[in-house]
Computed example of a mutant assay.
Amino acid sequence: MGEKSPYDPSKPITRPLFPTRVDTIVHTEKGSVHCICPATGVQRDLAFQGFEADRDTLKYRCPAAAFGLECEGRERCHQAGGVMPGDDGRIVRISLADHDRRIFVPTPYGSPSWERGDNRRSALERINNRIDNSFGFERHFIRGLAKMQTRVGLALAVMMAMALGHVNAGRLEQMRSLVQPIPATG
């Protein structure tokens, strides 16, 4: 009684990438891939090398080889993985067909291309929210695709016209605003 749990909430939970073999490669639930040095126990992020569309795999490279780091357990790591690395060090390929697609996707979480896509998605979410809530499309009684397309088109035209009006009036900070604040008097 009184033993402390080994769980540390400040550290992410890692799982073996290849659970059927003893290896030094682990991953988190967000899809980041790490190696654990068998000599020192230091955990390092593998260097992401891109998505190989022809193989449908994510390609990662040994951080010691990619970044020129010293790794005491390099040889033991290669033996554990059963690989004979070339000049580029150990290469790890993650087949998207064999792994959970909620964790491993062609654009890895946190990469610059993921950030760009997430920013685009966030902007569209704001526009969709404005159409649903401000223009009343959340609860509507419109029947027919042609009528709905016409009304949504009109709503988008109104949004663009309001933005243009704010820009022409010199109110750039209100370009995305649907309502003009009441000027302070006094």
Rank of each mutant, 00 (worst) to 15 (best):
177 S>Y: 03
184 A>M: 02
35 C>K: 03
145 L>I: 05
169 A>Y: 01
19 P>M: 11
76 R>C: 01
124 L>P: 00
86 G>S: 07
167 V>D: 12
186 G>M: 13
55 R>Y: 03
177 S>V: 09
44 R>Y: 02
138 E>W: 07
82 G>L: 08
174 Q>D: 14
116 R>V: 14
156 L>N: 01
84 M>A: 14
184 A>W: 01
35 C>T: 07
87 D>E: 13
176 R>L: 04
178 L>V: 00
106 P>T: 13
60 Y>M: 10
182 I>Q: 09
21 R>Q: 13
184 A>T: 13
26 V>G: 01
142 I>M: 10
83 V>K: 09
94 I>Y: 07
101 R>T: 02
167 V>C: 08
16 P>N: 12
6 P>G: 00
29 E>H: 01
99 H>Y: 04
146 A>Y: 06
103 I>V: 15
13 I>T: 15
36 I>R: 07
161 A>W: 04
76 R>T: 06
97 A>S: 08
100 D>N: 15
35 C>D: 05
46 L>F: 01
21 R>Y: 00
6 P>W: 00
149 Q>K: 09
131 I>C: 03
112 P>G: 05
158 V>E: 12
17 L>T: 05
2 G>N: 13
179 V>T: 14
21 R>E: 13
39 A>G: 06
169 A>H: 07
145 L>T: 10
109 Y>R: 11
29 E>D: 13
175 M>T: 08
146 A>G: 11
142 I>P: 03
36 I>H: 00
174 Q>C: 04
66 A>H: 03
38 P>T: 10
107 T>W: 05
32 S>W: 08
74 R>G: 07
66 A>L: 05
128 N>K: 06
90 R>K: 06
72 E>P: 04
180 Q>G: 02
41 G>T: 05
163 A>I: 00
23 D>R: 11
81 G>W: 03
167 V>T: 03
57 T>A: 11
147 K>G: 02
77 C>S: 14
24 T>L: 02
54 D>Y: 03
10 S>V: 03
43 Q>E: 12
160 M>S: 09
98 D>C: 01
134 S>L: 10
181 P>V: 07
10 S>I: 04
5 S>W: 02
32 S>V: 09
97 A>P: 01
164 L>E: 10
13 I>D: 15
59 K>Y: 01
3 E>T: 11
155 A>R: 02
4 K>M: 11
85 P>D: 06
